[in-house]
Design a protein around this nucleic acid. Sequence first.
RNA 1: GCGGGAGUAGCUCAGUGGUAGAGCAUUAGCUUCCCAAGCUAAGGGUCGCGGGUUCGAUCCCCGUUUCCCGCUCCA
Length: 516
Amino acid sequence: MAQEDVFKKLVAHCKEYGYVFPSSEIYDGLSAVYDYGQYGVELKNNIKKYWWDSMVLLHDNIVGLDSAIFMHPTIWKASGHVDAFNDPLIDNKDSKKRYRADVLIEEHMAKFEEKINKEIEKAMERFGDAFDEKKFRETNQRVLANQEKLDEINARFSKAMNATDLQELRQIIIDNEIVCPISGTRNWTEVKQFNLMFSTEFGSTAEGSSKIYLRPETAQGIFVNFLNVQKTGRMKIPFGIAQIGKAFRNEIVARQFIFRMREFEQMEMQFFVQPGSELDWFRHWKEIRMKWHTALGFGDENYRFHDHVKLAHYANAATDIEYKFPFGFKEVEGIHSRTDFDLKQHQQYSGKKMQYFDPERGESYIPYVIETSIGVDRMFLQVISAAYLEEELKKEDGSSDTRVVLRLPSFLAPVKLAVMPLVKKDGLPEIAEKIVHDLKFDFNCQYDDKDSIGRRYRRQDAIGTPYCITIDHQTIDDNTVTIRYRDTMLQERVGITGLKDIIFEKVSIATLLKKL
RNA sequence: GCGGGAGUAGCUCAGUGGUAGAGCAUUAGCUUCCCAAGCUAAGGGUCGCGGGUUCGAUCCCCGUUUCCCGCUCCA
């Protein structure tokens, strides 16, 4: 089957079995926004717990944080998000090329500069030493005409940019007959502003309210709490702060299922280190994070690092952990050496000293930061991609059969076990119900007595339930049941009294954490 | 944003200018001693939305919206 078909089926399966629904579906949906269903939310919570425990439980120098989504608007000025990602863009309908409207106008203005300079050059040649540039500029008709035109455009342009008047920007392009360098036509679309950040009104009355942003990353919440956590937690460098939370980005391209969403969830850990030691720590965290992924058992060969050659303005080293999705290797997690950029920026913008006194070195400094940042939703997609399998089965009579099974690691599976009476009579349902009642305090259990036993097993396979407990007539005699394993479909006979311990050992997250 | 394709039941799809069908799924009951597709019954759709043509539109025409594919963009 083509890889793309697998992905389509996976998306359909997610919806069909209560993992992921398109947002606002009854109102025709909301682009690039998705909801997690009854099983999706369980899987997501389990992924988050695995990450959180691996950070906060396993490292005595990493603590958690839950900072607010609303933050002071200056934070996004300091981080660079306000200025870096809100360019006015315009498309040429013929060449289908996209340009920055401001760049088009600036380039156009540069042409007038050139014309003026050429006039001056020519005049210089003509007049030689006697040439007076200032006077020439003030008197030459062609220079004056060009300069006037230039000043006029510049005045309109500055005004439009300051007021972010997109219509005026387009009008400037049209009035000046600026053409697309490729198609040569003036067939332009409207100017659009692609804002990375969502904004909203803060304050309950329209007059007193001010514009604030929904955070585009959780990291800044950690940076602005650096001093709070360091001081109240008596943290000594090196130490880390971990946070799980929602973030929001206006994506230009949607259509990638939950791989790229406008509202998404991040699991970020910022690790503060001595300046100069950051690249050692960068390598250290690369290793730790890769181990976290491979411990899930989806096959080491399906992961790889992708080191960045071109670095963001704040980083001096960066890599991605990529997983081989059905649609190719894609980034799941990013690890960045962010230098002291963020804390330095906040120190400058807030006027507060974002420094740490290092007793070992006897000096204060702004710590350097190693960031590990993973998208919960991407991780979710990674897990479910890896788990999804359409399996060909040979039946005893020689005919073949397929079953769809989610081979989720037990600790991540939404439902841990299904308990089912083999037949709906002879007191078997009552025994099954009692088992569910006893185990429901420890595990997510389901009771099912509808349809044939084989069909019930398949239903559980489809949602990834790792264990099925079946009560049969032998149970009445000796208090034993069968436990059926999802991946192998094999069964074992065990005593009812030992069930809790058996399941607990298999689904405990501690078993997984010990591998790290 | 541009171009192409599609939108009929929860899912996969059929269908006709004269008030809508199948399989699977769901619910209830029967049957059933271990791996889906036995039996019976029931529920569920103003055929994406709006407008036009027509005596009458799910079907023809126009617009719109959503999804899919390609291009474009992308920290």
